[in-house]
Design a protein around this nucleic acid. Structure first.
Lengths: 185, 185
DNA sequence: CCTTTTCAGTTGCAATCCGCCACTGGGTAC
DNA sequence: GTACCCAGTGGCGGATTGCAACTGAAAAGG
C-alpha cells in the first residue's frame, strides 16, 4: 500500500469525534498536516531492507553482490529496493568504469543528508542496550568520539519533547503538542 | 522474518570472496559488527506503521481509536504494532483512569529518546521537497525555529560522512569508511 | 578463441503478511 | 436496561516476501 492513503483518510476524520468543534487555526494546521514530510520519507526508507541497504551504503558498500552477501537479503528484493532508492534519488546507479560487469550504487547528496537520521538511530540503539557499544563513530580529524545527535534551540540549548511547539510560518499561529491530537505532521 | 538472520548470514560470508585476506583487526570489527545496534532498532521502529504510530505518539495521540482514525491503519495491524512497541518499551500501555473503556498509550523515556531520529527525518523530508514546509517545530520558550539536527564533533564542529571513522573502544584500533566494505555496524 | 567464472539481475513458486470487514466483550451514557 | 463507545480479535482474499534456479552480458584464464 502507499501512504497516499493518509491524505484520503485524514479529511474523512475531520468532521468526526473528539476533533470537531475545532478553531479555524487548527484547520489550517490540519491542512498543512496532510502534506507532512514524514510519510513520503518513510515510504522511501521506512522499510526494513531499504534502511539496511542505506546503512550498508554509509558503510561503503557499493555493488549488488556486496549488499546481497553483506545483508543476507534475497536478490529480487534487493533489486527492487535498490531501484526504489535510485528512483527516490537516495542512491545513484552507474556502471563501474573499471569493470563492465559491475554496477556502482553510491549515495547521492540527498542520501548523504540522511546521516543524522542514521547516526541518531544508532546512538539510540546503543543507549538502550541493543548491540554492543564497543565500536563507535569518531571524528576522522582527531579520533575523538562524536557528539550526541540532539534537537536544539537556535542558541544550542538541548530541547526535549515538552519544549517543542508548532508554528505556521505564514500566519505566525502556534500550537502546542497537546492541542495537536489527531493532527499529523 | 527477523533480523536475527543477519547474525547467521554474516559469518557465512566471512571466508568468502572480496572479504578474505583481511587483517586481524578487521576481524575484531566484524565481530563487533554482528552486534550492531541498528538491526534491533530497525526491527522495532523500522516498519512503516510502527514509525507512523511513533510520530502519532509524538504528536499527542494516546488512544487506540485516535491512532486508527488518525493514521487510517487497519485495526488488527494497529493492535499488533502497538503490542510490539509496548513489548519494545517504546510505548507504555495503561487503562485510562478517567474512562475504563479507554487505554492510554504513552511514550516511555526510551520512546521519547527517539525524538532526534524523528526530527532529523522530518527535516530531511522538508529539505528535499517532500511535504509542505509551512508548519515548523519551534522552541516553546521563545517561539523561535529549532536548530537543525546535525552530527557534530566533540567541539561542536559539524561533521559529514567523509569526516567520520570507526574506533574500537577497547583496543583503540580505528578504521576508515572505505575499509569497512562488507562490515556492518 | 573458447571455456569458465563473475556480476547483476529476472522468473516462478510457496509461505507469509497486510488490509478490509464483521464481530466480540467489557464499560459508559442516558 | 438499552443503546453506544472503546479496544481489540478472527476470517478471508490479495499483495509482498523469501528462496532457488535461471539468464545474459562481461571479464578472466588458458
Amino acid at each position: 500500500m502507499t501512504l497516499a492513503r493518509l491524505g484520503a483518510v485524514a479529511p474523512a476524520s475531520r468532521g468526526k469525534s473528539p476533533l470537531s468543534g475545532i478553531e479555524p487555526d487548527i484547520e489550517a494546521f490540519r491542512d498543512a498536516a496532510l502534506r507532512c514530510p514524514l510519510p513520503p520519507a518513510i515510504e522511501l526508507i521506512g522499510e526494513k531492507w531499504s534502511f539496511l541497504i542505506l546503512r550498508g551504503a554509509f558503510n561503503g558498500l557499493q555493488h549488488f553482490e556486496q549488499f546481497q552477501a553483506g545483508l543476507g537479503i534475497a536478490r529480487n528484493i534487493l533489486s527492487d529496493r535498490l531501484s526504489k532508492l535510485v528512483a527516490g534519488e537516495i542512491l545513484d546507479r552507474a556502471p563501474d568504469p573499471d569493470d563492465g560487469r559491475k554496477v556502482l550504487y553510491r549515495l547521492t547528496d540527498k542520501g548523504e543528508a540522511l546521516l543524522p537520521v542514521v547516526v541518531a538511530l544508532r546512538q539510540w540503539g546503543e543507549d538502550w542496550g541493543h548491540g554492543c557499544g564497543d565500536i563507535e563513530l569518531a571524528d576522522a580529524r582527531d579520533g575523538q568520539r562524536i557528539e550526541r545527535v540532539r534537537v536544539t534551540a537556535h542558541d544550542g540549548r538541548p530541547l526535549s519533547l515538552k519544549d517543542l511547539m508548532w508554528v505556521d510560518r505564514r500566519t505566525g499561529a502556534s500550537m502546542r503538542r497537546h492541542e495537536m491530537e489527531g493532527v499529523e505532521l
